[in-house]
């Protein structure tokens, strides 16, 4: 499979702030890739560098084999929605698209097509200032589709969309991916891209944290057995017995968290029994993808 986007040691400093810090990642052609990271992780800066809007401080990147130093050589194959959609507020949605279509050499027929794709045809004549955030988001996606791009880069495309809108956009992205297009979707929420992404790239503080498919990400999940003695006075004894048996256990309130023992709940139960301890609780706990994402990016999650 060919590489659509190749990023090599890419760095961007804004004064003393290192927005992107030696990022290296390859994105293959075709399919949907989720670019994930908390707010301020460097997603938008990375995207802007790929689009030629920002110059990297150091490092290199190529899009469709062309260096990002020369965006004019590849941008005709790239469509993009960058952060909050920006349009001329006093012009209609259709006229806004006309300005971009004119700049891009696209016909008015293409405007009709993309407006229908994002289901904005009935409001095409309304001023953008009268649009909701979700409608502006749809218009932004329509603008990104004007040139029927090979690579579609969407920065937080689900922002402001209602649940039905999110489902529609996911369906649209899947359809486009099936046409062989490469789609890079950034988000600070794993759940937004989990349903559509074939691969995820997670960055934090400008650095690569994880790169791979969702199944690989799930392998990063922590697994543990949570046990709780009926009598809280037994918890220290139980912890000691677990350590003697070679388990790693931590006390959390009235519970013991035994790492990596998901295949041994029966053994733990027997161990407790052998020490004359009755368990009030014994359960296996797996981290879900969201928890893995938050742990990798050093964010707390209320469980």
């Amino acid at each position: 499979m060919n590489v659509a986007i190749q990023i090599q040691d890419l760095t961007k400093d804004f004064g003393t702030l290192k927005a992107v810090d030696g990022l290296t990642v390859d994105i293959q052609q075709g399919g949907i890739v989720g670019l994930l990271g908390p707010n301020g992780a460097g997603k938008s800066t990375t995207i802007r560098m790929l689009l030629g809007l920002i110059r990297p401080t150091s490092g290199t990147a190529t899009v469709l084999g062309e260096s990002i130093e020369h965006p004019g050589k590849y941008m005709e194959h790239v469509g993009a929605l960058i952060e909050t959609p920006a349009f001329y507020p006093k012009l209609s949605g259709e006229t806004n698209l006309r300005t971009l279509a004119a700049l891009d050499g696209q016909s008015n027929a293409r405007i009709d097509e993309v407006l229908e794709i994002v289901k904005l045809g009935s409001r095409r004549g309304d001023r953008v200032s009268e649009y909701s955030l979700g409608m502006k988001q749809r218009l932004g996606i329509a603008a990104s589709l004007l040139r029927d791009p090979d690579i579609l880069i969407l920065d937080e495309p689900m922002n402001g969309l209602d649940p039905a809108g999110i489902v529609e956009i996911r369906t649209l992205l899947r359809d486009l991916a099936q046409q062989g297009k490469t789609i890079l979707v950034s988000s600070h929420l794993l759940s937004e891209v989990q349903a559509v992404a074939d691969q995820v790239v997670i960055i934090d503080k400008g650095r690569l944290i994880f790169e791979g498919d969702l199944a690989s990400l799930l392998e990063e999940a922590a697994h543990e057995v949570v046990i709780a003695p009926e009598d809280l006075d037994d918890i220290a004894t139980l912890a000691g017995a677990l350590e003697q048996a070679g388990y790693s256990a931590t006390i959390d309130g009235g519970e013991l968290h035994v790492a990596g023992a998901v295949d041994a709940p029966a053994k733990l139960n027997r161990l407790a029994f052998d020490n004359n301890i009755v368990l009030a609780e014994l359960r296996v706990r797996d981290e879900d993808l969201e928890a893995v994402f938050l742990r990798l990016t050093n964010r707390e999650m209320g469980l």
Binding site: L51, G52, L53, P71, G72, M75, V78, G79, A80, I82, E83, T84, A86, F87, Y88, P89, L100, L103, D104, A143, S144, L146, R147
Partner: peptide
Amino acid sequence: WGTIRNLLVSQPR
């Protein structure tokens, strides 16, 4: 308005 982003995506030169 931030529309310069759209313009430069459409015309990077």
